[in-house]
Write a protein that binds this DNA or RNA. Structure first.
Lengths: 201, 201
DNA sequence: TCCCTAGGTTGACACTGTCTACCTGAGCCG
DNA sequence: CGGCTCAGGTAGACAGTGTCAACCTAGGGA
């Protein structure tokens, strides 16, 4: 008995969607394949026909988050000015994290399924860093590759750090005003530019 | 029957230590109070005499990580020069994350026990940010408090982002050389200084 | 038409967190 | 001194989970 209204591919897809819904509502810890099955009206073992283990379905969910993130970054605005281009990338990165907190958290949260056992999960995982690298390589004075890597690491640290921090309750608990939070993205991106030698107007 | 060789406080302490050992070895997901009890040679219910739930023992472990982190930062070297002072703080922060990856991950990993239900877990959670704030407030030209908060958020984003990234396998997968990683801390701290207007020698 | 396989169902098992009842020893009070 | 209370344990039960194993059915291909 296939899931309501379709072929087996539909059950697989329905499992992924349901897993995401459960995680969205109650967190990764609450993900239970039996719950998934129950919600889809199939036997508790049916999801295992498509995913050998709980980790596999989680890896699928995470892998899709990476892919969605990569696609989002690809669609960003661009500029011929390298500093502005970098700013637009940073902006896009943080926008994604803000608009899709769950997906962002899925990508960088712990514990994830072991990448060695789920290589396809990582297909698009490197995209953000690679994009940062390329964008930074275009900045003036970036000759050695190691220097590009160092600044790409720096930039990634900043945006990843801010994205992560903004997703926690920490900012509320630290007594940081909402107006300050609202300015944080622009301010932080400005600081990246300053750090990387953007000319002052 | 108290745990091997002592009063009940000893079982409580032993539970915390064992929980940390289990987490260190197999990750937070592997933490099981029955496993803790088994390893300590007590009945499976005994840990519940000291911790009402699994979340409570986890909150204790995390709270101790925060306290240890705060103590570590308090012991850092300091300087009269505000930029150098900031650099020393950043250095200390990243050193801690490097020397105590498990503890760092415990503090910032998801999902944590609900802070609202475990307020004592957060006793020292704000320390790092508060310290960053104070240190940045000493930099020249930091009059408005909101400006201090913005730059403290920026600096925190950088160090937290880098600490997090360096703890994942991501850097290996991204083809970043070890030599580059080794330089990342110094380079990133230098970039923070540049971003925050450190005079050039 | 027959066989194989994909994709389901069902039941079992071991493990977990938590609830409940019970026990013992120590300390305190009358 | 004896009785009571409580802290801190033991043991058993229950519900839920992930996973293993056996079985079934329908569709497709030879």
């Amino acid at each position: 008995m296939a899931a309501k209204g379709g072929k087996s591919g539909d059950l697989r897809e329905a499992c992924v969607k349901q897993a995401l819904a459960i995680i969205a509502k109650d967190g990764i810890d609450a993900l239970s394949l039996r719950d998934v099955a129950r919600r889809l009206g199939v036997s508790h073992q049916a999801p295992y026909k498509h995913f050998p283990s709980r980790d596999h379905i989680l890896a699928e969910v995470v892998g899709r988050a990476y892919a969605g993130f990569a696609a989002y970054l690809e669609k960003r605005s661009r500029s011929d000015d390298p500093y502005e281009d970098l700013g637009l990338l940073g902006r896009c990165y943080l926008d994604y994290a803000q608009k899709h907190p769950l997906h962002y958290q899925l990508m960088f949260g712990t514990p994830l399924p072991d990448p060695a056992e789920h290589p396809e999960m990582m297909d698009k995982a490197e995209h953000a860093f690679a994009t940062l690298r390329e964008t930074i390589a275009k900045l003036p004075g970036r000759a050695p590759a190691a220097s590009v890597d160092l600044d790409a690491l720096y930039a990634w640290s900043v945006v990843h750090g801010l994205a992560s921090i903004l997703q926690t309750r920490a900012t509320q608990q630290l007594g940081i005003r909402k107006a300050t939070i609202a300015e944080a993205t622009a301010h932080t991106l400005s600081r990246i530019g300053a750090a990387l030698g953007r000319p002052r107007n």
